[in-house]
Design a protein around this nucleic acid. Structure first.
Lengths: 147, 147
DNA sequence: CCAAATTAGTTGCGTACGCAACTGGTTTGC
DNA sequence: GCAAACCAGTTGCGTACGCAACTAATTTGG
């Protein structure tokens, strides 16, 4: 009989690593006004999928819709995101990156890569790929489960 | 030349998975008064290392010391943790689990295992072990870095 | 042996974010 | 064709948590 593995610590590790990483990212992005919280995730997604609406962001990133609303509001005030009422459904907004956001995109990517390098500094290239794969699997499974 | 892997998403995955997991745990622990936030992590550590002080908890779990103070205060008010002034250094407190905490321990472990199973439902046993190993490596590296 | 520096813990403040209740537009079903 | 159900987004509220400034105890160095 195999020794029973003590498996509790995943959530603890996730928590520790996530908080550390958030602090790193916050420090890097602070000069651009999107330091605290997860604003950068919303911005990245608007850059990736221009025209997306808040509800789609909420579902995809698994935030609360109130959080999405407030984050987008900030990004709009900071001049990174443009909101137009969707003519096909006047309840929702089409979100587009502004010129400022498009110009910021390469910098943003490079800063996030920098944070990522810090995060994965203890891993080999193969281990990093493996980790991404495993995390994606975990995430996939949590989406299935909702059905 | 290998195709350049796009590596940004680790932090996004971490964020999504961590928040989902926190919500799950919060729901499971709510009946016991330690639903929100990371109180359970502090309680687990006091159970594991009776006599530990707040500073050691802060370092180990990489929270801010203010967060530790407030979390321990709640755990004390809820009757899970007992604080005695360390006779050897009257600035610090020795933290001990109460009888209530000791009795709650098995339940707590089983609830956390339940949350963990939900988290890793999409992984095989081997993948789960691999994931833990990789996360530990990431965490180790971030400790090194502080030097 | 005492003033200065350090350390454990607390408190004030600002921001983040989830839940619940709400507004106003859209779809459904009778 | 209109009331009911539903949906995108907002706002109020409560809790969490990091940073900075603070208190009180301890250590250090002259």
């Amino acid at each position: 009989m195999k020794k029973r593995a003590y498996k509790e610590p995943i959530s603890r590790l996730l928590s520790i690593i996530h908080r550390q990483n958030q602090k790193n990212i916050a420090k890097l992005l602070q000069p651009y006004g999107i330091g605290g919280g997860h604003h950068y995730i919303f911005l990245i997604n608007v850059l990736k999928k221009p025209g997306i609406n808040q509800d789609q962001l909420t579902c995809e990133l698994k935030f609360d819709k109130a959080t999405t609303a407030r984050s987008i509001k900030q990004l709009e005030e900071l001049g990174y995101v443009d909101r137009k009422i969707d003519p096909g459904d006047r309840r929702s907004y089409q979100l587009h990156p502004t010129e400022k956001a498009l110009q910021f995109d390469p910098t943003l990517r490079s800063l996030l890569e920098q944070a990522n390098r810090k995060l994965t500094r203890g891993l080999t290239e193969e281990e990093e790929v493996e980790l991404i794969m495993l995390l994606q699997k975990v995430n996939q499974a949590s989406i299935q489960e909702e059905v």
